[in-house]
């Protein structure tokens, strides 16, 4: 996300939640516009170019999905993050089908929101055309589906490669377990166990064992982050 384009529209009808979001997003370096109703969201969304629009599904006047459609029809290109208290999968998927770019279920941690906003904001930038991505001494070949560190191949299963690719594409950003599950496994629910941790643990052993420095970092209570030492 470019420095000049960190303006976010938050559509949220609960004043306390909206206040918390505005405060935390501002302290994370975003400019925040707030809208407390569907009509206000339509007005603000159309009047200004936002990097991301977060929208609550349940609004007092117009349904969030309808607001999103109308903004899209009006030519708003910003990605939408649907925030829903309707936790069930079909509701979420319905949100995505209706033109949302990602969803989050209430209650959520702010870190999770931030991670998803970052990922969405990045997606709206130009997508790199490189077929080989590099982070530190790690290189992954998107065509051959192979990875190596300092020229030494890392044997990865297809799903492990997908996971590593997702981490690499989000280099330097925190990726939550739910995001991994959603983007790597295409699963729209949260398994109650620590299965993702175990899976990432195995990928980490393959990628980081006996290397000069670790790349995959656990961010406590949040998820994972792939980054090279500065």
């Amino acid at each position: 996300m470019t420095a000049g384009h960190r303006r976010i529209l938050v559509v949220e009808d609960d004043p306390e939640t909206a206040g918390q979001l505005a405060e935390q997003l501002t302290s994370s370096g975003y400019e925040v516009d707030l809208a407390a109703s569907g009509n206000e969201a339509l007005r603000r969304g159309a009047s200004c170019d936002h990097a991301v629009i977060t929208i609550d599904r349940m609004l007092p006047d117009i349904d969030g999905i309808t607001v999103m459609r109308q903004l899209r029809d009006g030519g708003v290109a910003a990605p939408f993050l649907i925030i829903s208290a309707l936790g069930e999968v079909d509701d979420r998927v319905r949100g995505l089908r209706a033109g949302g770019d990602d969803y989050l279920v209430k209650p959520f941690s702010f870190v999770e929101l931030l991670a998803r906003l970052e990922a969405l904001g990045r997606r709206s930038e130009t997508i790199a055309k490189d077929t080989i991505l590099r982070v530190g001494d790690l290189a992954i070949d998107l065509i051959a589906r192979t990875a190596n560190r300092r020229g030494k191949d890392i044997p990865l299963l297809p799903r492990e490669f997908q996971l590593l690719e997702y981490l690499v594409r989000n280099e330097g950003r925190v990726v939550s377990r739910a995001m991994l599950l959603q983007h790597v496994w295409d699963l729209h629910f949260d398994p109650s166990t620590n299965i993702i941790d175990v899976y990432v643990g195995r990928v980490r052993r393959k990628v980081d064992d006996q290397q000069a420095y670790p790349l995959i970092h656990t961010v406590r209570g949040m998820g994972y982050c792939l980054r090279a030492p500065r």
Partner: peptide, 10 residues
């Protein structure tokens, strides 16, 4: 099975 492979391996 693929998802739980790592946990089983552990």
């Amino acid at each position: 099975v693929e998802l739980y492979d790592a946990a089983a391996e552990r």
